[in-house]
């Protein structure tokens, strides 16, 4: 039987609201942790003693290392698509805030004293890790709205490469069917436009889509193609659309690569930091 309201449970997702609540809690926890670490550090410096200072610095070092290792567990979670290990977004949020507390602990542990070459290198890798992480966080917030304004439908880099290859093929096909002058115009003008940085920047600056940019581009080209035969003129404008699409794909690809590129730097610097930290701990404990 069926009538009126059904027995199907109503599903309104609460995942975003929940993750916002978790993030808010972690923000408060991070601020409190910063305050606690700072208070510990500065209160120890008010009553300095050789033994107390050593205990403080060593403890901060161990806390920082422990937290950094916990934050790095995100890497293991990323390799598990299966359920039962929590939401990846929760892991990432945890990674960010634990990473920040770890950075504070390590900063109080060593300050900005570079020391001997090994610790100087360790400090460099530590700063690189923090900087790349902050950069990634910033880009993950800034780039998606820009991409949304530009793209027709969301696509990953692999899709963009395929579309770009198709457009280039289409452009070259049109060129191969035309006269020598037509081919030269495609090669000299449109290929330049397809890879033009200034045109790419225009997409970013105006946050415009292809449909918005195309009429203006056609108008730009109109004068130069007035002397062509009607069929070639139409073919040239079609090739121009391909060229502009290639340029837009390049613009989107660059943004997507920026969103992935920082991760390489982050992972490499983190690995280096852990390697050097292991040597540093070993040398402190045994030498």
């Amino acid at each position: 039987m069926t009538a009126g309201p059904s027995m199907v449970p109503v599903r309104v997702s609460t995942s975003r609201a929940r993750s916002l609540r978790v993030e808010r809690a972690l923000q408060i926890f991070t601020i409190l942790s910063f305050a606690a670490l700072g208070w510990w550090y500065f209160s120890s410096h008010q009553h300095p003693s050789a033994n107390g200072y050593h205990v403080l610095v060593t403890a901060l070092g161990w806390i920082g290392t422990g937290l950094a290792v916990s934050a790095a567990a995100l890497s293991a979670r990323k390799r598990l698509a299966y359920q039962g290990v929590g939401r990846l977004s929760a892991w990432l949020t945890g990674h960010i805030y634990i990473g920040l507390i770890s950075a504070a602990a390590i900063f109080f542990h060593c300050g900005l004293h570079a020391g001997p070459p090994l610790t100087a290198l360790l400090l460099t890798f530590f700063l690189l890790t923090i900087t790349s992480g902050v950069l990634g966080w910033f880009m993950a917030r800034r780039i998606p709205p820009l991409l949304t304004a530009m793209e027709e439908t969301p696509a990953i880099a692999e899709d963009l490469l395929t579309i770009r290859a198709d457009c280039l093929r289409g452009m070259l096909e049109l060129a191969s069917n035309g006269s020598a002058e037509f081919r030269a115009m495609v090669q000299l003008r449109l290929m330049k436009d397809a890879t033009s940085w200034s045109r790419m920047l225009r997409f970013y600056r105006r946050r415009s889509s292809l449909a918005e940019e195309l009429p203006a581009f056609h108008r730009e080209l109109d004068e130069g193609v007035a002397h062509l035969r009607e069929s070639e003129r139409r073919a040239f404008l079609r090739a121009a659309e391909y060229a502009l699409r290639v340029n837009k794909m390049n613009a989107e690809l660059l943004l997507q690569r920026l969103m992935r590129g920082w991760l390489t730097l982050h992972v490499v610097s983190t690995s280096g930091m852990f390697g050097l930290a292991a040597i540093h701990i070993f040398s402190v404990l045994y030498f």
Partner: peptide, 28 residues
């Protein structure tokens, strides 16, 4: 809806930025 995984939707669970969710349109 990831029926075999306790209805914990794989797509939603594995989005690092909570950008994806499932909604009931009428309730929404």
């Amino acid at each position: 809806l990831c029926h075999d995984y306790d209805n914990n939707h794989g797509c939603v669970h594995n989005c690092p930025y909570s950008a994806i969710e499932r909604i009931d349109a009428a309730a929404y």
